[in-house]
Amino acid sequence: MPAFLEIPALDIFSDDGENLSSTIQLLLVMTVLSLAPGILILMTCFTRIIIVLGFVRSGLATQQMPPNQVLIGLALFMTFFIMAPVFAEVNEEALQPLFDGDMSQEEAFEAAADPMKEFMAEHTRENDLALFMGYAGEERPESLDDVPLTALVPAFAISELKTAFQIGFMIFVPFLVIDMVIASVLMSMGMMMLPPVMISLPFKVLLFVMVDGWHLVVRSLLFSF
Rank of each mutant, 00 (worst) to 15 (best):
P2S: 12
L10K: 13
S21V: 05
S21D: 15
T23S: 11
Q25L: 10
V29Q: 13
M30W: 06
A36Y: 05
G38Y: 08
L42F: 15
L42T: 13
M43S: 15
M43V: 02
T44M: 04
G54W: 00
F55C: 12
F55M: 14
V56T: 14
G59F: 05
Q64M: 14
G73M: 00
F77C: 09
T79V: 01
I82A: 09
F87N: 05
N91P: 00
L95W: 08
L98I: 03
E107G: 11
A108T: 01
F109G: 11
A111L: 04
P115V: 03
K117N: 05
E122M: 10
H123Q: 12
D128R: 08
M133D: 09
M133K: 05
Y135H: 08
A136F: 10
A136L: 12
E139I: 05
R140Q: 15
P141A: 08
V147Q: 11
P148D: 10
A151P: 06
A151F: 02
P154S: 03
A155G: 08
L161H: 03
T163Q: 11
V181Q: 05
A183Y: 01
S188Q: 14
M189S: 06
L194M: 14
P202I: 04
K204P: 05
L206Y: 05
D212Y: 01
R219P: 00
S224N: 11
